[in-house]
Structure formats: C-alpha cells, structure tokens
Design a protein around this nucleic acid. Sequence first.
DNA 1: TAGTGGTCTAGACCACGTT
DNA 2: ACGTGGTCTAGACCACTAT
Lengths: 266, 266
Amino acid sequence: MTRVPVNRSSAYSPPVTASSAGAPAFALDRSSPVPLYYQLAQQLEAAIEHGELRPGALLGNEIELAGRLGLSRPTVRQAIQSLVDKGLLVRRRGVGTQVVHSQVKRPLELSSLYDDLEAAGQKPATRVVSNAVEQASAEVAAALGIAEGSEVHHLERLRLSHGQPMAFLSNYVAVSRLDLDTGRLESTGLYRMMRSAGITLHSARQTVGARSATPEEARLLDEPGGAALLTMQRTAYDDTGRAVEYGAHIYRASRYAFDFQLLVRA
Amino acid sequence: MTRVPVNRSSAYSPPVTASSAGAPAFALDRSSPVPLYYQLAQQLEAAIEHGELRPGALLGNEIELAGRLGLSRPTVRQAIQSLVDKGLLVRRRGVGTQVVHSQVKRPLELSSLYDDLEAAGQKPATRVVSNAVEQASAEVAAALGIAEGSEVHHLERLRLSHGQPMAFLSNYVAVSRLDLDTGRLESTGLYRMMRSAGITLHSARQTVGARSATPEEARLLDEPGGAALLTMQRTAYDDTGRAVEYGAHIYRASRYAFDFQLLVRA
DNA sequence: TAGTGGTCTAGACCACGTT
DNA sequence: ACGTGGTCTAGACCACTAT
C-alpha cells in the first residue's frame, strides 16, 4: 500500500459529516483533490492517535460504515487497508475491524535514510569534511551498478550532536545521475537535490554490522582506542530499481543504535 | 497489502490460459481456493524471477490485461498492487507498469525473527543453554507490558554455524501467554508453538547496537577479549498489538551482520 | 490528443468465526 | 444461523504523461 494523494475534482455536495453511537465523526470533502479513501484514512489515524478510538475498539462493519459515510464499500476498504498495512488496525472475519491493542505505535522511521540525506547540507549538526569527484572503486562501482573507474561524487561528513561527534558518513553518488554542485549541496541538501532532479527514492538495502575502531577512527569520533563501532552500508534505489546512492558509515556504538520495526508479511 | 490466500470455490470453466505478443502465459484456475489476484501475482512474480519478464519490461495496460485473462480490472490491479508493494513492479501514469530495473531483488528477510524463533527447538545449529521460569526483571516486564515479577519463560541458546558459535540468544515469553513445555519446545520450536496456541506474529520492534564483549561473552563466543559485538533487542507483537516475546541477543560481529531492506513510504 | 494508471460506484457471492 | 471480512465484477470518470 501507501500511495500518494493527488487527484479528484468534482463539485457535488458540500462536506459530509457522519457519526453514530458515540463513534467519531468524519468529514469528507468531495471537492478536495485528496482521494476520499485517503481523507478517511487520515481521519481514522488521527482519531486513533488522539485516543478517540481506543485500542480494541471496533470500527463497525464495512457495509454500515460505507452507508454512514456515503461511500462505497471498496472505498472504505481501501482506507481501512492502508491503516492495516500501517499496523494500526486489525481485521478479523466474523468479528470486525479493531484498533490494534496499543503498543507498536510509531512505524519504522526509515532509520537514518532521510536523516542522512536531508542533512547533507551545511546543517549545524553536520560538518562536511570533503566533497570531491573521484573514480569509483570496485566496492562503490558494484554497489551503484556502474563501471569501475566511473566518476562519482564522494561526500564525507562528520555528524555531531550536542557538540559531540556521533558518526562519520561517507556517501557516493554517480556523477551521471546527479551533478552535485558543492555550493547548492551545502544549502539545499542531497535529498532535495535528488527530488528536484526527478529522482524519487523508492527503497534501500542496508547492512548493519560492528567492528573495533582503528586508531584514526577512534580519534575522529572521540572514542577510546579499539572501541566498538556500528557500521552501516546502504544502497538506495529510485523507483525504477536503479542504484542512486551508496553510503558506508560508522557510528559511535556508545551513543547510537538503529531502531526499526518489522511487519510480518502474509 | 499482503494478505493470505484461502477462499474461493466455484466450479465454472476449466483453467484459462492467456498469452499475447510474446508475453508470458498465465494459467488461472477458478476452481482453486487460491484467490485469482493471488494466482496472478504469483505467476507474475515467477515470470520476473525466471527472467521471462526482464527489468524495464512493460506489462501492458490493465484493461487489456484484464480482458486477456478474463478478469475484471480491479482484480488485475490487486495482483499488480501486491507486487508493487513488494518492490517488484513500478507504475507510472501515462507510461504503464514495468518490472523494476533489476537490483533490490529479495525483499527483507525479516532479519532473524523467524530464524531465531523457528530454531528454538533442538536444531543441530542451536544449543539450548537453559530454559526456566523466572520472575520478570524491570527490563523484561517493560518490554512485554506485564507486571514486574510476573512469571516468564527464559530461554537461553547458543547459535552455531559450521561448529562455530555465532550468537547468544536470550528470549523471554510471558507464562500467561504461552506455557512452554521444555520437551515440546525442543522438538517443535517456539514459533510453531505460538501458532498452535493461536498467536500470530504481526510485527516486531528491534534495536541494533554494538558494544565490546565482556570476558565471559568473549569466552562463550570464542572471540578475543574486548571484541566488538553486535547487540539486538527485539520485542515481537501479535496481531492485536500485544507483546508476545522479548529477546536480548548478542552476535559475533566478525561473523554476522544484519541485512535488510527499507521501502520508502508515500 | 491519445493512452495509462488512479479513483470510485453498486452491487454480488463466498468463507470464516462467533453464537 | 448469523455476521463479518475476503473476493470479484463491469462498468465510470478523472489526472498525469508522452507525442
């Protein structure tokens, strides 16, 4: 699931408000470009978030809900399904659809993907150590699916938090995919530059490991010699499946951990 | 997306085979209990897997596909959507639906969730170190959402691979949720016991970090003193959002890494 | 302008869980 | 037996992209 809004444009009746038996009211605007199923999903999510729909609460069956809202059942189902996919609702045959029993809340934060890319500019919390065009090493070329020796941007940054170093980030982007002007990079951020170049991130593959710090790394991150470091290699792909960015990062394990959520499939 | 099959049961026409212009053929069986959209999704996935549908290949528009297969468009869309969600296909308005440009392949493997639980029995690769009922510590109680001091099963296992220790796994399950008989546990596995107790895993929250090994841990895992270890804490939830299992594990960083895929939402 | 996916409707029958 | 979600149909109109 998870698609974007954008569409619709009619001019029928004014906003419809529906309510029943203490259940929250939903206001759907058919003149809005936001899809009806998306409007409903957002309002359901807000109701859950604000505690109007408590964990375990039943939503009422889909047919009745559809009738109350003046929507068709498939549209209501689409809204519900998107929240089921987010882990906020559960469907049970013969029982109904209910709000998940608290817990789990905040879905995965994409760990540090956006974070790393968004901050590629000169944010106070990030110091750009170097930004140059190099020839791709075998490792980088393989990760980006390009020929060894191709030109790539190599961006090295030190991530700070509260004045303390947190991580050392090393990113690679093929020049052929995006020409990174240093000036714009520092003011705009890598992620925004990708977007405006028509590249939409779609997925990323990450490997998280650990190892002991080399003396140089220990010095850079202000850790004692041989301290445990978290390592992360990530390749990000656009929506056609082509590699966009590769990063090989190290984090101070004493101050950093990856936190994420898995949804069980099927 | 991602639901389970199971349903349907009619007895109309025999299997339908459709094909056109070199595109792969799909055989749909309306008498099968497997949903039509699911049959189609599986066959599309197989065609991609086997290279019959190459990266970048267009699927043909949905209306025509539906007509060719004798399905309605929503059904075809449902099949396609499930593969889009898996990251195998991309839709573009005005263009069509195409196979993702290679890469990315194997979606997330749920890292070691199933792996850890499945192997909870006496698999040759796993040695049960201890299995006892204890009173929940504050950490465990908080993770499982139960009262401190409640009875929990505590299972400790050493994970081996090729005769070498790989990880030390420490799991907790509330007695009130599942009464673990040691004998059955070793022969059946934790995951299967949960399933037969009506518990279906739904999601899990994980934190991955690193630290240096204590002398005892180093000895246990056959690592040099102070070696870097990967740590992982995981809480697994059932489909009502209640915590089912909590684990605090350590892995030899020299031999183990977490590999997973992120899908960008929206 | 033509073609494609995105959204929506108003029904239908079936399978599963609860009662 | 009944109620709920699961699946499916046969259309419709709209929005975006490319030519």
